[in-house]
Simulated assay, not measured.
Amino acid sequence: MPTPYRRHAYRDAPYLLNSLPGALHHRPLAFAHRGADPRRENTMGAFRHAVDLGYRYLEIDVRTAADGTLVVFHDEELDRATSGSGLLSEKTWEQLAELRVGTGDGFTEPLVRFEELLSTWGDVHLNVDLKDAAAVTEFARLVEKHQAHDRVLAASFNDARRRSVRRRLTRPVAASGGWAATALIVLLGPLGLMGRLGGRVADIDCVQVPVSQGRIRVVTPRFVQRCHRAGLQVHVWVVDDPAEMHELLDMGVDGLMTDDAEALAEVMRERSVWPQR
């Protein structure tokens, strides 16, 4: 039997469909991390496969090319995951378009411009990790151009980038806490000092965290409860083991990010919250 979902005082955020009335209200969200296919991460092939499986949330990374193009890519350097080498920031989109992404089995997929992905599906939500400071202005411009405010979440380890995005938009977008805000929640929460975080919590909608950071266990029942009392959702990355997925969902987390699209889809199906698209 699926575990009953507890109802928390979520903040209403159009991006977070589980915060609003509808089929996913108070249900956990499933995120395809970089498309959830490590062989061809952050490519249209990976994204299409995840969407076809039923995913409505794609976690992606964006970086800025030399000509200002916003490219869906994780690493600062091209060497690990493409047929090219060197810094992505030193290449124009024309140069990057000639490269192919792949690991192990060869290089098969082209790189993707953020605008292309943003335009492909009208009902797919993008969890966007802004990997460099230059990405802020172009990200905001494209969100405004496509009026995609309700379909994107601005994420960054750097809290200043997230705040900078919001200052450039005519309507707010969802946001997750960066390392500074999240660390304060982890460290001050057990001391009963969540109330002192003030604006650091007020301008975010969720925390997106690993199960553990080094020797520190981050996601615990009390951590989840503290975040919920503050109106924050808890999304956990990157979880590929079905048993751990069930454990975290039983704990009450609000979303899981995975590199194994099929495994998380099956777990969500067992809990009667699939497909999500």
Rank of each mutant, 00 (worst) to 15 (best):
L153K: 00
E90H: 09
E115A: 14
N127V: 01
L99F: 01
D150H: 15
T92S: 15
E138C: 03
S119D: 12
S83L: 04
T92K: 11
T120W: 10
A148V: 03
L111Y: 02
W121K: 12
L78R: 14
A81T: 14
V71F: 02
G102P: 01
H74G: 05
S119F: 02
G104F: 04
F114G: 04
N127R: 08
T120D: 11
V71N: 06
L118D: 04
V143F: 12
S89V: 09
L142V: 05
E144M: 02
R113E: 04
V112H: 01
L111C: 07
N127K: 10
L99R: 07
T103L: 07
R151K: 13
Q147C: 09
T82S: 15
L99T: 05
G104P: 07
L99D: 05
A135K: 00
F73C: 01
L130Y: 03
W121Q: 13
R113I: 01
A154E: 09
G102N: 01
E94A: 15
E109C: 04
S89F: 02
T137P: 00
R141T: 12
A133Q: 10
L153I: 08
A148L: 06
L78E: 15
E144H: 01
W93T: 10
E76Y: 11
D75I: 00
R151M: 13
F157L: 13
F157P: 00
G122E: 15
F139N: 08
G84N: 08
A140W: 11
K91R: 15
D75W: 00
L96G: 08
G84M: 07
V128E: 04
K145Q: 15
W93V: 13
W121S: 11
V136E: 09
L99Q: 04
K145G: 01
E144I: 01
D123V: 12
K91W: 02
E138H: 02
V71Q: 08
E94C: 06
A81L: 09
A140Y: 09
H74L: 04
V71S: 09
R80N: 08
K131F: 06
T103R: 14
E76L: 11
R113L: 02
T137H: 13
S83P: 06
E77V: 12
L88H: 09
R151T: 05
H149K: 02
H74E: 06
A81P: 00
V143R: 14
W121C: 13
L153Q: 02
H146C: 06
D79W: 01
R151I: 05
L130N: 05
S83V: 07
T137F: 04
S83K: 06
K131R: 15
D129T: 03
L111M: 15
A135L: 01
N158G: 02
F107M: 06
D129W: 04
V112P: 00
A97M: 03
R100A: 05
V143I: 15
G102R: 00
